[in-house]
Nucleic acid binder design. Structure first.
Lengths: 228, 228, 228, 228
DNA sequence: TATGAATGAGGGTTCATTCAT
DNA sequence: TATGAATGAACCCTCATTCAT
């Protein structure tokens, strides 16, 4: 599946990303054991940040989850902030890479592709998504800028789709930028309430939201039933 | 205006609510000076919580904003958690009261009324709205339950509208509960990016989102232009 | 005695000094109990810094000496550095104030007055003197500048004496600035080895050093006994 | 030059000394590369200790200066304390060896020889001298005793000179031990303020201090100009 | 109603050192 | 001989909160 490829890709990139943060006291782990520990740190921090919020999570808690003393974390990440940065950067990189790799077979409408991709990815990676929205304000300014740029890149994908669709007469989003935000907000809200095993399957959700989105940007308003 | 009536109402209730929580060690302040201080605490906490998140804000910061020593805060709120609870409870009470009071003149379609009300209220009270979404996880369980109940009451307003509209054949939301969440997520996302004085006025936003919502729940898809 | 007056003076000044360090989170203690604690902190820190050096002393140790939890220290001094600064500033202020107040009865020669004053004061306040020489490098740059200026003021006292004495033909210090440093280094070295109750009394020391200093700056070398 | 011979001598002895300290877990390095690294460690530690003080310098900083990971330091010195001990022992050995080797041509007065030697050596090896005075208290008791013994040996050189000179009627130091300390304190203070390229050359300093010392211990006080 | 002073817990981070590789 | 990874202790400091005044 697309996203698992992305996951592999991401982890393959990670050392490069970490290496690019010049001046940090902590080199990225190079030995197998260190790489494993670093990955466990990422996973523990992700879970904790998603559950309690960055500010409410202590390095001691993360260390305890990982099964290591607090000081050992600093062999892998120079600061707590860097763990957050790493998680958010990886997430955005994964997300964009997964989009590139997502070529749902038999689908031709790009809007449908985007909606399905977004829902699936966001349900699958709920924690990453969650902290990427919630912890933006806990990023230091420079990190914030980087993440914001990635986010805009992602949103531009949908804006392009809407604009192209409008030129082609397929959709009628009056203001593609606003519509982009509206659709993304709508879709991104799903993981906040969706629970597996509930009344609706993931596919049900996809269909329902796809229908809402399609109609919202449909080129024409049906005959006599405008409201008000 | 509707909301100012609500505000009065809310403030009148708030001490009573606080007093009713069993075990509260702090008497509600009764003198004018104390009420003023309490209000300044609420305002300072609101700004800070919205800007940095509950966990990242210290009582010292709030006290400093208010112009008082930390210890003095405890004459007005028994704990930091109670400040958060107070803000969120007031917000939900205000929101529902404002809805009751909102009778936009000349409007007849309830969905339009809801959309316009929600956008206006959420842009006007962006900080309250923001913390009400962001700080849910920092509420103690009982407080969380109370807030969640209020939130569901508010969402039920829209669900009812959608269900009634469907019965009447005016809208065609296949799954009104899901559609409610979709619409509310969409609308609630606005304050995250909307800036006064930007390209679009608040009224422009209202029209654009109203159009999206109307079409999304429109009863029929026009003739031959389905996507794909 | 001169120095006890100075001590009183110093403590009377201290709040003013502390108050002048704008922006610090910690106000100088205002209530009697707080003033007492602050004084105990100063004393404990002085002893510890003199014994082990600033860098090797922990706030925990100071707190423990004072009989208080570490956090309580921060009600009196914003940082560890501020304790050091306070000690060194007070010392220099005390020293200069004590010089002003030192009017040894019956003495007329200013060089003698200086030598006796310096030896007495430095033996009496050995800890303050010691940290003022040893911990200069642990002062933050601005604090360092302040202390250095005070030190130069003190040294200038002796330089003036030597220059005036040279004009008057009483002494023959060829280079009064260098001679100042030489004399002060010589005298300041005393507390490093002098122990009360040893072979020599404090007065013995005074006489011995006074003799060395007098001869060193004596205007003429006696007849034929130059060395070499 | 005298001191470079001493330097060679010292370095030749140092490993042996280190090896002779019972219980040392670290074999003295035998291969060329290790010896080089050990020397770089000494140099880096010397600079850092002189600049910031033993307690304020971390093994990580030293390792970083050397271009090596902290763990590698322990191949050369068993503990941080041993680096300090090594530096101070070497310094004292060097100093005494340099004195032995110092036979300034044409000089006959031993006091002049001592003064010139001391000033030159202390200006040339300012860092070693500095830490040997400043870091005494950071030596473990046994190391302290060793260093103190060496220091007394050095001071005894001057005391002997003064005593012999007094017997011979050349000088008149009333209390040779006190005078020794006075002179050494005076001379040792020079590197604290002397800067190359300043108003005075090293030779100027020598002459000025030599003059002060000579007069201070001159056998007679010139006729009528006693002070007071 | 507010303050100054304290507590006890815990925050992120650094430390000297060890040791398998 | 050097490294990467870990330990366990300690670092300075901040926290929410209490309480006598």
């Amino acid at each position: 599946m697309a996203t698992s490829a992305a996951k592999t890709h991401d982890r393959a990139m990670a050392p490069g990303q970490a290496g690019s943060q010049a001046g940090s006291r902590t080199r990225p782990p190079t030995r197998a054991k260190g790489q494993e520990t670093a990955e466990r740190v990422r996973k523990a921090a992700l879970k904790r940040f998603a559950a309690s919020g960055y500010a409410a999570v202590s390095m001691r808690e993360i260390a305890s989850d990982v099964g290591v003393r607090p000081g050992a974390l600093y062999n892998h990440f120079p600061t707590k902030q860097d763990i957050l940065k790493d998680l958010m950067l990886s997430h955005m990189a994964d997300l964009l890479a997964a989009w590139e790799a997502s070529d749902l077979p038999g689908e031709t409408d790009p809007l449908e592709r985007f909606v399905r991709f977004h829902i699936r990815y966001h349900l699958e990676r709920a924690d990453e998504v969650f902290i990427s929205y919630m912890e933006l304000r806990n990023l230091e300014p420079e990190n914030f800028r980087i993440i914001e740029a990635e986010r805009r890149r992602y949103e531009a994908l949908l804006t392009d789709i809407l604009e192209n669709g409008r030129s082609a007469g397929r959709y009628a989003a009056e203001d593609p930028k606003v519509t982009t935000r509206a659709i993304i907000a709508m879709l991104t809200g799903i993981p906040a309430w969706y629970r597996e095993g509930g009344r609706l399957s993931e596919r049900d959700i996809e269909e329902l939201y796809l229908d809402l989105v399609r109609k919202a940007v449909a080129p024409e308003i049906p005959h006599g039933d405008r409201m008000a």
